[in-house]
Design a protein around this nucleic acid. Structure first.
Length: 428
RNA sequence: GGAGGGCUAGCAUAACUGGUAAUGCAGCAGACUUGAAAUCUGCCGUCCAUUGCGGACUUGGGGGUUCGAGUCCCUCGCCCUCCGCCA
């Protein structure tokens, strides 16, 4: 949510920034509502001041046992008027709130301006594409032949865009999650969190998934819970409605959770393999920071995510997202894309964002600064990383001419010291 | 699912039969001090106004009764205790 004072005082700035995001938004209705809100507020507050004064009189007269019948009669009408105006004010306020909740964040000045993903800027790349003396297979072939991934049986029990990890596939998936959590908690100073996977509506509004993206979320009809689309939702909202001590910042959390997305409107897209699923596993990194440090914390967050790929020795590139490609709540973001030799393309395995105070304002996450003032924190998050894109990358990059898969060095301790998966689909 | 108790500022605690939210701790600024502690003063939830005075709102959310609601009524949420069910 944007600061309404900023909207009121610098509407042209807001218009320009949103235009940078390729959003032609007519701010006028919102500004009109805000003007109306101030008008009504001023009027009704005068009446309330009058009422408060009169009430004080009545209370005093009553104490002296004087007759107050006439005063009460006179106040009745005023009470009615106030009630009516409060009703109007409430209507204006809820309209205003709805409008505010659906406006995306403003892009930071350093974000590349552009219409879509083609305007994203490559910031750096690490490692090289591996050379194969044979034609590398895509992960869905490997997964099928080696008995690691079973999408057909998943379809029977759930449907399209689900997968059953089996045998070495299940084990490798679990090893990856463990490895990523260990790295982030032991080397990068994140605290491990394992949150609920069902959250309430307020939490979804707090991080910005709602109201805009309700159609992309799984929702339980009976209780109005949402299956989390990312651990960002429960973990960031851990501190909603709180005032944090400045000394606690930055707060750094790492959380493994399954993530659930309806992927509405993607029918027929990325159906090969497991890169786009209704349920996938992800280790998420969340930071709650002082506003002065959030951009430095964003850079180090990206490095923390990159660290996983480097340890796995996977070639990747980092892209600064353009104004046309960044997410709703983000002020600035980077994507990490890893090379899939079998598929012959890069896939996003992480997206790291600074939301500045956008989420903090919605979720009411504040801190006391060194002047004793209560201010909004900045929130950040990034995947560290998503396994549905990472496991395929490992399978495709580490496949052998014989048709098996080597285990990356760092994962060997996590699979009981085994060094490879044989062409028969067993650890060895 | 049922019964009872509770929810007041960062924390902790008050408020007569309804009369308009008090206090302590912590924090911030200032005064005093060589410095600190102690002490004193102000600030210490949100909004509006601001040349100056100020005003309104805020007792988990929403609604009702009333001239007036922390207090009474309805409703929803959450926490605690117990019963039932359950991995």
């Amino acid at each position: 949510m944007l600061d309404r004072k900023l909207i009121r005082e610098q509407p042209d700035l807001i218009r320009r920034m949103l235009r940078d995001r390729h959003l032609e938004l007519d701010l006028q209705p919102l500004l009109d509502l805000e003007t109306r809100r101030l008008e009504i507020t001023n009027q009704v507050e005068k009446l309330k001041a009058e009422r408060n004064q009169a009430n004080e009189h009545i209370a005093q007269k009553k104490k002296q046992k004087a007759d107050i019948g006439g005063d009460i009669l006179a106040m009745r009408k005023l009470g009615e008027t106030i009630k009516q105006m409060d009703g109007q004010l409430k209507e204006v306020e809820s309209g205003l709130q709805a409008a505010l909740l659906s406006i995306p964040n403003l892009p930071h000045e350093s974000v590349p301006r552009g219409a879509d993903e083609s305007a994203n800027q490559e910031v750096r790349r690490w490692g090289m594409r591996p050379e194969f003396a044979f034609t590398p297979k895509p992960h869905w072939e490997l997964g099928d032949v080696l008995g690691m991934l079973d999408t057909e049986r998943a379809a029977k029990i759930s449907g399209a865009r689900f997968v059953v990890y089996r045998n070495t596939g299940a084990r490798l998936e679990r090893a990856l999650i463990q490895f990523m959590l260990d790295t982030q908690t032991q080397e990068a100073g994140y605290m491990e969190i394992f949150p609920p996977l069902l959250v309430n509506r307020d939490a979804m509004i707090g991080t910005g998934q709602l109201p805009k993206l309700e159609n992309d979320m799984f929702r339980t009809a009976e209780d109005d819970f949402f299956l989390i689309p990312t651990a960002e939702v429960p973990v960031t909202n851990l501190h909603c409605q709180e005032v944090l001590q400045q000394g606690l910042l930055p707060i750094k959390y790492a959380a493994y959770t399954p993530c659930f997305r309806r992927e509405a409107g993607t029918y027929g897209k990325d159906t090969k393999g497991i890169v786009r699923q209704h349920q996938f596993n992800k280790v998420e990194l969340v930071k709650i920071t002082h506003p002065d440090n959030s951009y430095a914390e964003l850079e180090s967050l990206v490095l923390d995510a990159e660290n996983i790929l480097q340890k796995l020795n996977l070639h990747y590139r980092v892209k600064a997202l353009s104004t046309g490609d960044m997410s709703f709540a983000s002020a600035k973001g980077y994507d990490l894309e890893v090379w899939h030799p079998g598929g012959g393309r890069y896939w996003e395995v992480s997206s790291c964002s600074n939301f500045e105070a956008f989420q903090a304002r919605r979720a009411n996450i504040r801190f006391k600064d060194s002047e004793g003032r209560t201010r909004f924190c900045h929130t950040l998050n990034g995947s560290g990383l998503a396994t549905s894109r990472l496991l395929p990358a490992i399978m495709e990059n580490y496949q052998t001419a014989e048709g098996g898969i080597e285990i990356p060095e760092v994962l060997i301790p996590y699979v009981n010291g085994k060094r490879k998966i044989t062409p028969q689909g067993e650890f060895a």
